[in-house]
Design a binder for these strands. Structure first.
Length: 643
RNA sequence: GCUCUGGUAGCUCAGUGGUAGAGCGCUUCCUUGGUAAGGAAGAGGUCGCGGGUUCGAUCCCCGCCCAGAGCUCCA
C-alpha cells in the first residue's frame, strides 16, 4: 500500500487492530509520540511481530506493534537487563580492567559476571551500587549499533570472554553492540531508552560463578541485583527476602528445637529432635492412613543391598559416584540403598502375578542414602540420608490413565490438607529415549488426556521426560510464593524389562507390566523442611509439636491447671504445663515457641471451672471458656486438620 | 567438587600474640506474680581438628573437617 505523497510511508498495526501510517524509517518511539504524549513518556520498548525491541529501532512496514510500558511483564525483563548494563558500567568505572561476562535478567532481578582478580568485597559492592546512581543520573541513552565481525573483534580485542562469545555468533546472525555512556557491550538487547529510566534497584550479593556455567572453566565474580519500576515493588521484594530469611527452616529448626545436623554425626545427616519427631510422626501417620485408603500396600525393605541388585538395575554404572562406597563382608559387596525401586521390584517378582492382581501398589517410607556433593547440602532440604514417601505401582498399559487419575486425586488431597497451591507439568519424550517411541508417545498422550480431563492447566515440558518414560510433576507454591517439587509420577518402561516384571494376561501369556515410580511429598526431610518455611514455624494445631501450654497464674492454681492438662491429654492433645517464672515470661515463651494455644488458669478460672484461652498471635484478645468446650473445640480443630 | 566468607559457653555474638567476655538459656535462692523478659547468686569454654612459626598461638601460616552465599550437580 502506498500513499500519494512524496515521502514513502509504512503502515503498522496496533493490538486493538488499528492501523497507522508512519513515515519510512519511523521508530517505535515515533509511533508512541504519534499516539499521544503520555504514551511517548511511558513507553520503554515495543514488541514488533512478537519480538521485544528497542524503542529507537525503525519499524518495518506491515509490522504488528505493541508498545510496552511498565505495566507489561516483558518490560520488567528489559528494565532488569538494562540494570545489568548499568551495573557493568559502574563496575568498569571502578575497576577498569574488569573482564565482562554475561549480564542477563533473571526471575527476580539480574546479575552480571565479571572477570576480576579478586572477589568483590561488600564495601566494593556498596560503592558499585552508589556508582550506579551516578550512571542513572547521567541518563545515558542506550545506543544500539550493528557492527561487522571485524569491528566487533576490534572493539573487544582486550576482552577474551566477549571474543569467545563473538566466535559463537553465526555468520547469518546480526552482531550488535550497545553503548550507554562510557560502557560498550556485545549484546543482543533490547534495552530501555536510557539509563535514567532505572529507578528502583538494589545490589543483593556477590559470589563466584563459573564462566559459561561450566565447572571446568574459570570462576568469575557474579554480582546479583534486582530492579523494579516502582519503589513499592522493590520494597515488597526486599521484604519478601527478609521474610524468607526469618522463615529459614535451619534457623527455625534450631529455635524450635526440631532438628540438628552435627559435625560428629556427619554432613547431610539429620537428627530429628523430639519436637521435629512429633511433626514427622503426625505427617507420616496421616500419609500412611491416606495410602491405605487409596489401595496401597505398605512394604519394608533393608537400608542396604548387595551390589548385584544395582548391577541389574543399571544404577551402578551410571550413578556409582552418587552412592556411598561399597562395604565388603564375607566376599560380598553391599551398598547403602540410593533408592527403593529395585527392592520393590524384587517383591513384585517374588511370585507369578495375574492381570487380576493389577494394579499392585507398594508404598514405603524408605530411607535412602546418596553421597551428595558437599557444596550442595542444605539443611533438611538437601541431605545424604532421607526418607522418601516412595511407591511403585505395577499396572497394565491399559491402566495408565485410570491410575494417574487416582494419583492426582491423592496428591490433590494431601497437598490441600497442608494448604499448598500447586500446578502440574507434563514431560514428554526426549531424543535419548529408549524403546518404542510410539509406546512412549501414546503414554504421554494418555497422560495429557488425563490432565485435560481434570481441567488442569498443565505446563508442557517437551522432551523433558526421562529416557525410560514420561512423567507428571506437581509443583507446589508455598506461603511466600516460592515453588517446590511436590511430587512426581514417573512412568517406566525400562525397569520392567531389566527386572523381568511380568504378569500373566487373560490370554494366559506373559506380558510386561508398566511401572509408575511416584512420590507425593518427596522425602520427609525435604517436605518437613519446606513445611517449616511454609508455616514460618507456626504449625497448624494438628501438626504443632506442642498444641497447648497451660499456664497457672501462680503456684496456688497449679492443681487446677494440672486437672486441665489431664483433661486435654485424655483426648490425645499434646499439652505442657509451664510453671516457671512470671506469667508474662511464660506467655512470651509460648509465643516465641509458636505454641498454638495458651490456657491460663488463675483464681477466676479455677473457681468457675473455666479457662482463659489465648491463641497464638492474638495478643490480648483472649476468651474465657468452659473447660469441656475448650477440649472439644481443640479436638475438633485437630480432627478437621484446620489450617 | 569449585570460589569466597566464617567456626569463641546450650543459643546469638564481642574480643585478644601473654591460656577469655556479654546477653539470653540452665541450676539454686528470693519473689506468688493476671497477659511478650521480677530480682540475686552460681555452674558452664581443649576459642572446630591436626601440624607449623614463636619463649608463648584462640589470635599469624599450612592442611583437614563443618557451616554459609553462589556456581555446578540432583537417578
Amino acid at each position: 500500500m502506498s500513499t500519494p505523497t512524496d515521502r514513502p510511508s509504512i503502515c503498522v498495526s496496533l493490538p486493538d487492530g488499528r492501523e497507522l501510517a508512519l513515515p519510512e524509517g519511523a521508530t517505535a518511539a515515533d509511533l508512541a509520540a504519534k499516539i499521544g504524549p503520555g504514551l511517548a513518556r511511558a513507553a520503554l520498548a515495543a514488541t514488533v511481530d512478537g519480538e521485544v525491541r528497542d524503542l529507537a529501532r525503525p519499524l518495518p512496514d506491515g509490522a504488528e506493534v505493541r508498545l510496552l510500558t511498565e505495566r507489561d511483564p516483558e518490560a520488567l525483563g528489559v528494565l532488569r537487563h538494562s540494570a545489568a548494563h548499568v551495573l557493568a558500567t559502574a563496575v568498569r568505572e571502578l575497576v577498569p580492567t574488569a573482564g565482562i561476562g554475561f549480564g542477563p535478567a533473571i526471575d527476580d532481578g539480574f546479575y552480571y559476571d565479571f572477570d576480576v582478580p579478586e572477589p568483590f568485597t561488600p564495601e566494593q559492592v556498596a560503592a558499585i551500587e552508589e556508582r550506579m546512581a551516578a550512571v542513572i543520573e547521567a541518563d545515558h541513552p542506550f545506543e544500539r549499533q550493528v557492527v561487522s565481525r571485524q569491528e566487533a573483534c576490534d572493539l573487544f580485542s582486550d576482552d577474551p570472554l566477549k571474543l569467545e562469545r563473538l566466535g559463537e555468533i553465526g555468520d547469518d546472525e546480526e552482531i550488535t553492540v550497545y553503548r550507554d555512556g562510557p560502557f560498550l557491550d556485545l549484546c543482543r538487547g533490547p534495552h530501555v531508552p536510557s539509563t535514567g529510566r532505572l529507578g528502583h534497584y538494589r545490589l543483593l550479593s556477590a559470589a563466584g560463578a563459573y564462566w559459561r556455567g561450566d565447572e571446568r572453566r574459570r570462576m568469575l565474580q557474579r554480582i546479583y541485583g534486582t530492579a523494579f519500576f516502582r519503589a513499592k515493588d522493590l520494597r515488597a521484594h526486599l521484604h519478601r527476602l527478609e521474610e524468607a530469611k526469618k522463615r529459614d527452616h535451619r534457623v527455625l529448626g534450631k529455635r524450635l528445637d526440631l532438628f540438628s545436623v552435627q559435625e560428629e554425626v556427619g554432613a547431610g545427616l539429620v537428627l530429628w529432635h523430639p519436637h521435629g519427631g512429633r511433626v514427622r510422626r503426625i505427617v507420616e501417620d496421616f500419609l500412611r492412613e491416606s495410602l491405605v485408603a487409596h489401595g496401597y500396600e505398605l512394604v519394608y525393605t533393608p537400608h542396604l543391598a548387595s551390589e548385584e541388585l544395582y548391577r541389574i538395575s543399571g544404577h551402578l554404572d551410571v550413578f556409582a559416584e552418587d552412592m556411598f562406597p561399597a562395604m565388603e563382608s564375607g566376599g560380598d559387596r553391599f551398598r547403602m540403598k540410593p533408592m527403593n525401586c529395585p527392592h520393590h521390584f524384587m517383591i513384585y517378582r517374588s511370585q507369578v502375578r495375574s492381570y487380576r492382581d493389577l494394579p499392585l501398589r507398594f508404598a514405603e517410607l524408605g530411607t535412602c542414602y546418596r553421597y551428595e556433593r558437599s557444596g550442595t547440602l542444605h539443611g533438611m532440604l538437601r541431605v545424604r540420608s532421607f526418607t522418601q514417601d516412595d511407591a511403585h505401582i505395577f499396572i497394565r498399559e491399559d491402566q495408565i490413565a485410570e491410575e494417574y487419575q487416582r494419583l492426582l486425586d491423592l496428591g490433590d488431597h494431601l497437598l490441600g490438607v497442608f494448604g499448598y497451591e500447586y500446578r502440574v507439568a507434563l514431560s514428554t519424550r526426549p531424543e535419548k529415549a529408549i524403546g518404542d517411541a510410539a509406546v512412549y508417545d501414546a503414554a504421554s498422550d494418555r497422560l495429557a488426556g488425563v490432565l485435560r480431563e481434570r481441567g488442569l492447566d498443565y505446563e508442557l515440558d517437551e522432551g523433558g521426560g526421562a529416557f525410560y518414560g514420561p512423567k507428571v510433576d506437581i509443583l507446589v507454591t508455598d506461603a511466600l510464593g516460592r515453588e517446590w517439587q511436590g511430587g512426581t509420577f514417573q512412568l517406566d518402561f525400562l525397569m520392567p524389562e531389566r527386572f523381568g516384571l511380568e504378569y500373566v494376561g487373560r490370554d494366559n501369556r506373559r506380558h510386561q507390566v508398566v511401572v509408575v515410580h511416584r512420590t507425593l511429598l518427596g522425602s520427609m526431610e525435604r517436605f518437613i523442611g519446606g513445611l517449616i518455611e511454609h508455616y514460618g514455624g507456626a504449625f497448624p494445631l494438628w501438626l504443632a509439636p506442642v498444641q497447648v501450654r497451660v499456664l497457672p497464674v501462680s503456684e496456688q492454681w497449679e492443681g487446677s491447671a494440672a486437672e486441665l492438662v489431664a483433661q486435654l491429654s485424655a483426648v490425645g492433645l499434646r499439652v505442657e504445663l509451664d510453671q516457671r517464672d512470671t506469667l508474662g515470661y511464660r506467655i512470651r515463651a509460648a509465643e516465641t515457641m509458636k505454641v498454638p494455644y495458651m490456657a491460663i488458669v488463675g483464681e477466676r478460672e479455677a473457681e468457675a471451672g473455666t479457662v482463659a484461652v489465648r491463641a497464638r498471635g492474638a495478643r490480648r484478645k483472649q476468651v474465657a471458656m468452659e473447660r469441656g468446650e475448650f477440649v472439644s473445640r481443640l479436638a475438633d480443630e485437630v480432627e478437621r486438620r484446620v489450617l
